[in-house]
Amino acid sequence: MSPNNPTTASNPNGLSQRPLPPDQISPKAVVLKVMQLKNVARRNWKLLVIFLAIGAGIGFIYDLMNKKPAVYSADILFNLGGGGGASGGLGELGALAGAFGIGQGTPDANIFVGDNFLIYAKSRPVLEKTLMKNDTINGKDTMLVNYYIRHSGIRDKEWEKSDTLRSFYFSRIKKPSEYTKLEQIAMSDICTRIATEMSVTQPERKSSFMELRCAMEDEMLAATFLTSHLETIEEDYRQKQTKKSREMYDLLKDRADSIARVMNRTDSRLAQYIDQNQQIVVAQGKVTETKLQRNSSFLSTLYYQALQSADNMRLSMIREAPLFTIIKGVYYPLYKDVPSTLGVQAGIALALVLAVIVIFLRETYRSVMQEK
């Protein structure tokens, strides 16, 4: 066999050895590659460490400049039970209304049913009623809207570029009709922000339970706002749900008061007439006395009937009033969600990629120079 034949080679034992196929790698080649990589790492480890340190430092500075505050989540699970005035209560209203010539109409759509309630609970009028309340926070009587301005982060985000709004506070509790232009702008921004921080959901479609949840940057703010907002919803719900009954009750109360005034005047006239005519024997005088007694007795009957109707209406209002049952309230400590910082990780990853590229170019240049 010719020694110049490229397809064969002789080993020390005189045996021919075939070369490996192109798609296979010998263990010797693997070991050599590993030794080369080890040598490359030994020559360039300082460069790699410098790149990683620079990348981690840049990422750390980025995290500090873009650090996001922790968010505290609070939730309340409750059941909204409707009053009993939808059927029986309206029948009693109709019976009482008949005495005053008032007809019974078709009830309006209920805004507290289904998806209507989900929209209603986040609406601006209800949010304003909650914010315009005094609450005891950290032992101090504080307007909730001013506490929100101080601790929600709105001054550092939405109002960052407005010096006027950054120093703004509400002076006292007001109705929306009393707001100044600046107060209207501030309240609009606050309600818009709260609408993104709060949610009202129904955990199970087949259940009547509702869940009110909010996530804010201050633990006390999140818990206090959520509790106060549920109280506001209950109060507003109660007023709207019993509006007709309250109007009827006020009407019956006014009627009873007017009858009482007329009855008192009649009783006074009767007593005065009896005092002045104790010895009267004329029939005409007896007729007048009998007439006054009859009027007094009739007015007394009407008065007690009016009082009974008012009491019945008050019981009807109690039956119609909604029942809010809190299944799970707010418990401390609230769940704290700390936003993850990815600047250091991203800086290290980018630095590693750049270091590998630089080392590759450096080793390539070194290899070329050695060949020359």
Rank of each mutant, 00 (worst) to 15 (best):
Lys174Cys: 05
Thr164Lys: 13
Thr192Leu: 07
Pro176Asp: 05
Arg193Asp: 10
Asp156Thr: 11
Arg166Ser: 07
Ile185Leu: 14
Lys175Phe: 12
Arg155Ala: 09
Tyr169Lys: 00
Arg193Leu: 08
Arg166Asp: 02
Ser188Val: 04
Cys191Thr: 11
Trp159Ile: 02
Ile190Trp: 02
Lys181Leu: 15
Arg193Trp: 06
Ile173Ala: 11
Ile173Gln: 12
Arg155Pro: 01
Pro176Lys: 05
Glu160Cys: 09
Thr180Met: 12
Gly153Asp: 05
Ile154Val: 00
Lys181Asp: 15
Lys181Gly: 15
Lys161Ser: 10
Ile190Glu: 02
Arg155Gly: 02
Ser177Tyr: 02
Lys181Pro: 14
Tyr169Met: 00
Leu182Pro: 07
Ala195Ser: 15
Ile173His: 10
Thr164Glu: 13
Glu158Tyr: 08
Arg193Pro: 01
Gln184Tyr: 09
Ser167Trp: 00
Lys175Trp: 09
Trp159Thr: 02
Trp159Cys: 01
Ser177Trp: 01
Lys181Arg: 15
Thr180Phe: 09
Pro176Asn: 06
Asp156Cys: 02
Phe168Gly: 08
Ser167Glu: 07
Arg166Thr: 06
Cys191Phe: 01
Thr192Gln: 10
Leu165Val: 09
Leu182Ser: 14
Ser167Lys: 07
Gly153Trp: 07
Asp189Asn: 09
Glu178Pro: 10
Leu165Ala: 12
Ser188Tyr: 08
Asp156Ile: 05
Asp156Gln: 13
Ile185Lys: 14
Glu160Ile: 14
Asp189Pro: 00
Tyr179Phe: 15
Ile154Leu: 00
Ile173Tyr: 14
Lys157Asn: 11
Arg172Gly: 09
Ile173Phe: 13
Arg155Gln: 06
Glu178Ser: 13
Leu165Gln: 13
Arg172Cys: 04
Arg155Lys: 10
Ala186Ile: 03
Lys157Trp: 04
Arg172Glu: 13
Pro176Ser: 09
Ser188Glu: 11
Thr164Ile: 09
Pro176Glu: 05
Thr180Pro: 12
Ser162Asp: 15
Arg166Gly: 06
Asp189Phe: 05
Lys157Ser: 13
Thr192Ala: 12
Tyr179Gly: 02
Ser177Met: 01
Ala186Trp: 04
Ser162Cys: 05
Glu183Phe: 11
Ser188Ala: 13
Lys174Leu: 12
Tyr179Thr: 01
Gln184Thr: 14
Ile190Asn: 01
Leu182Glu: 15
Gly153Ile: 03
Ser171Cys: 02
Arg155Leu: 04
Met187Asp: 04
Ala186Pro: 04
Ser188Asp: 11
Thr192Gly: 12
Phe168Met: 08
Asp163Arg: 08
Ile185Ser: 13
Lys175Cys: 05
Lys175Glu: 14
Glu158Ile: 12
Met187Pro: 06
Ser162Ala: 07
Ala186Gln: 03
Met187Lys: 05
Ile154Asn: 00
Phe170Gly: 04
Glu178Ile: 08
Asp156Ala: 11
Cys191Gln: 00
Ile173Lys: 14
Thr164Asn: 11
Lys174Tyr: 07
Arg166Glu: 03
